[in-house]
Design a protein around this nucleic acid. Structure first.
Lengths: 239, 239
DNA sequence: CGACACCTTGAAGAGGTTCAAGAAATGTGG
DNA sequence: CCACATTTCTTGAACCTCTTCAAGGTGTCG
């Protein structure tokens, strides 16, 4: 069967530790394999889902990079997160059966479609999966607490430092460099996420560069002094 | 048995629609009743749980009013939400088996203790409960998206207007007035939640009062013109 | 009644925004 | 492959919102 062919074997996926529970036996692993309905390719700049779309599935990112953003009728716009390989998106859709934000690919991406009714079904049989789903949602809640702290009480330099440290840490966990990264998003998108204007983001990058903390060549960032960056966060002159 | 005596019958709780799934049959309702281990009374000013506490249970608020707040080592502090009767707190603790924020009672409160392992157990048997838990977590994620939008792209007047409208709407859903409310929190706590200083909160209240939108007598707020308040949010001079 | 926490208001200052212009990179079509 | 349009990024200067600092007022509770 064709469907069979395009299926992803979660049990063989090299992202397994990132998006699936650990410590399953073979039987349970086989069940999990049935979770993924299909893969989908998303071209850069296009949406995985839009605000208002009917919710049916969660999505596990295999490759690529996404942003999620909410928009109001009045045209306000807020990037709520950036997601990379091994992360799950779509959790916002569960509560009202439709999505309340847009998920846009910032580079060509490939995702696994996880029909939510199947997740719930399997969760009843595989305790580890049930708990894993709860953990993923709880992790997202805790992450957002961190963003609220950032937006509510940090100044521009701290915000950008936190942002860079978080990005590089997540990339490092995926086998990339600890000191080098290529931004997938524009200054404006960073600004939206951090509650700053794009000019402020640009200026703050320039300031970090002047101070010798980073080198900035457009979207290519080289972190020269990660401790200094951490110090920017910790030794905040308070606000 | 004593334990039996202090148990709460969820099936008889007048908050049922708020914190429990609807459309259960008798059998399922009886199971849900076994969910609540005990009630607990929390005195005003004391904590239901602290950052770092081991996570064991979610808590359903029966009466009273809470704030949750995260704190960093450097002394930064951010109120992440205000919770009232019928709402669930403690979701942050699931991911790492310990809480990552404080939950403080802003008035004497009574809560139902819902041991999380029992929730997971029952979720496997009662599909509606399983889905309800997922919805509660998703709702919290969506709520936080809204706060991120507020903190990231609204100005002081809009933030306070959103805050008041949200509070009064939730109170109204619980049978209170649409136009009158008593704040349970200080200006400083409002400010922390909204990413503003307490002076700014106070000034903004005064401005609303000058404009005839509200009357402010300390913590007693009378909303005279709710449409004007909504207009503050919608006709933002953009930022 | 006095101590304490909370709230209001004023004035000065800082951080970030806005507006503007130009430079660098990227993409497109001939 | 190059010219041109477009998007993205940087930088400067003026401005504005919110913060900071300070003082006094109001309310509450032992």
């Amino acid at each position: 069967m064709k469907l069979e062919a395009i299926k992803v074997a979660c049990s063989n996926c090299n992202l397994r530790e990132l998006c699936m529970p650990v410590g399953l036996n073979t039987d349970e692993l086989n069940k999990i394999d049935e979770l993924v309905a299909t893969r989908r390719r998303i071209k850069r700049g296009t949406a995985l889902f839009h605000n208002g779309d009917t919710f049916t599935s969660l999505y596990a990112i295999r490759t690529g990079f996404f942003k999620t953003c909410v928009t109001t009728e009045e045209g306000l716009d807020q990037v709520t997160g950036f997601q990379m390989a091994g992360e799950i998106i779509g959790l916002d859709g569960i509560v009202n059966d439709h999505h309340t934000c847009d998920a846009i690919a910032l580079e060509d991406a490939e995702i696994c479609v996880l029909p939510f009714d199947r997740i719930e079904e399997l969760s009843r049989e595989v305790n580890a999966l049930q708990h894993h789903v709860h953990k993923i949602m709880s992790r997202e809640i805790v992450r957002e607490h961190g963003v609220m702290l950032l937006l509510g009480s940090m100044r521009a330099e701290e915000r950008l430092a936190v942002f860079l440290l978080n990005l590089v840490q997540r990339l490092h966990a995926r086998g990339f460099s600890q000191s080098e990264l290529v931004l997938r998003m524009t200054r404006e998108e960073i600004g939206s996420y951090l509650g700053l204007k794009l000019e402020t983001v640009s200026r703050t990058f320039s300031k970090f560069a002047e101070d010798g903390i980073v080198e900035v060549k457009q979207r290519h960032i080289q972190i020269n002094d990660i401790d200094a960056l951490k110090l920017v966060v910790n030794s905040h002159p308070c606000r």
